[in-house]
Nucleic acid binder design. Structure first.
Length: 434
DNA sequence: AGGAATGATTACCA
DNA sequence: TGGTAATCATTCCT
């Protein structure tokens, strides 16, 4: 019995075709339709047994012969078609998945945190952003910053190595399955489309594993970040010198305690803190001062005197040098003199209903505020308290609280203020116009 | 230990 | 975007 014959004998299910009929599909149909007697189960079993008795070489040879048979492609495609129509069509609908929003979110986050995407500066940029958000000092910040960066790099490394492993496993498994299916497609109906589908299923499975990996990585980054930020919350008070510099600026700019970006930078440099810390400090100071001007009176007086003395010293030095130029007129960096302005207010004169200030103050006020703000006025009153004994019952801060710093005070408060001045004129000599 | 002081954060606003 | 107001969390001081 040659291979061809034996193979055909093995194809008993096809209806026991004779060798002469095998090459002709029409004769197959004809014989089936004629109701040719089916082989009984015993015959089939016998044939199966015969196959198991075959040697490997024989089986390979038969397989090869089967693959080469000219009927095979036609039968294969018919069976594939039937399979496609019955089994595969059921799950063939949900083929093209839209990109999972969850994965997109995770991807974006990993990219933003510098875990995925290009390595260059990724982690450090995120760390810097976190540092900026936290507004930590540059000195201790650098230590924590590098620590954060190192940990982030570690997470990044683990993430990438795991991702690589998954991708490798995915591709290996896909190849394996593809080869297996291709191999099997020689003996059973597996269309290329089905193989593609199988590959897609495998990829989906692996991408769900990847999503878990991404989720875990995101969690790790979040934990790291929160720890990093928590560490930064552990604040330290600024040193005495820094506080002094900030207070000096604040009280010498009491009418407008809003340092420009340049001034903030300069202050930050002087104090050894960040610009955002300067902003925080001024934010806190303004609000706390405004809330309780009385409490800050002593401090304000202290700085007013200090600044005035400093100004006087520099002025004396300038006149000693016989220089006609205004001291500090050419300096854009230092504010001590050029803005000593408000500090002089404690020593200023009063004239009429308006406020007459020293030339230095006038220079500062013109163009910034035509009308002094309420905290400014009340602070002035308090600074003058040695000269003007205000009644204890009156608390300017109560009125001030309701007003924002720069808002022009309502006329009633102006009148209130002026009436105080009038009352006070009995205590000390004032010009009749007061 | 407990309150005050203070730097940082957050929500909201213009 | 920068400011205010409230609040939190930590440090300082008594």
């Amino acid at each position: 019995m040659d291979d061809q014959t034996r193979m055909l004998a093995g194809l008993g299910g096809l209806g026991g075709l004779s060798q002469a009929d095998v090459g002709d599909p029409d004769s197959v149909r004809k014989q089936q339709s004629l109701g040719q007697p089916q082989q009984d189960i015993g015959d089939i079993l016998q044939q199966i047994m015969a196959i198991t008795d075959e040697s490997l070489d024989e089986a390979q040879a038969r397989k090869h012969a089967l693959n080469c048979h000219r009927m095979k492609p036609a039968l294969f495609s018919v069976l594939c078609e039937i399979k496609e129509k019955t089994v595969l069509s059921i799950r063939g609908v949900q083929e093209e998945d839209p990109p999972d929003p969850q994965i997109m979110r995770l991807d974006n986050m990993l990219l933003a945190e510098g875990v995925s995407g290009p390595e260059k500066g990724g982690g450090s940029a995120a760390a810097a952003a976190a540092a900026a958000a936290a507004g930590g000092s540059p000195n201790d910040g650098s230590i924590e910053h590098s620590d954060y960066r190192a940990k982030l790099a570690q997470i990044r490394q683990i993430y990438h190595s795991e991702l690589e492993k998954y991708e490798q496993a995915c591709s290996e498994f896909t190849n394996h399955v593809m080869n297996l299916l291709r191999e099997q497609s020689r003996t059973r109906p597996i269309s290329p489309k089905e193989i593609e589908r199988m590959v897609a299923i495998i990829h989906r499975k692996f991408s769900s594993i990847q999503m878990q990996l991404k989720q875990s990585t995101c969690e790790a980054v979040m934990i790291l970040r929160s720890r990093f930020l928590d560490a930064r919350r552990k604040r330290r008070n600024f040193n005495k010198q820094a506080t002094e510099v900030l207070n000096e600026y604040f009280y010498s700019h009491l009418s407008n305690p809003y340092p420009s970006e340049e001034a903030k930078e300069e202050l930050a440099k002087k104090c050894g803190i960040t610009v955002s810390q300067v902003s925080n400090w001024f934010g806190n100071k303004r609000i706390r001062y405004k809330k309780n001007i009385g409490k800050f009176q002593e401090e304000a007086n202290l700085y007013a005197v200090k600044t005035a003395v400093d100004a006087a010293n520099v002025s004396a030095q300038a006149s000693q040098a016989n220089s006609p130029a205004t001291p500090n007129s050419g300096s854009s960096g230092s504010y001590t003199l050029s803005h000593a302005g408000d500090a002089y207010l404690g020593l200023r004169s009063l004239d009429g209903d308006g406020v007459s200030v020293t030339p230095a103050v006038q220079q500062q006020q013109v163009g910034t505020e035509d009308v002094p703000s309420m905290p400014f006025l009340f602070h002035t009153c308090l600074q003058c308290s040695d000269l003007f004994p205000f009644p204890q019952s009156y608390s300017p801060s109560l009125e001030c609280r309701a007003l924002s710093w720069k808002r022009t005070p309502p006329s009633s408060l102006w009148h209130c203020f002026i009436s105080f001045l009038r009352q006070s004129s009995t205590a000390i000599p004032l010009s009749p116009s007061c």
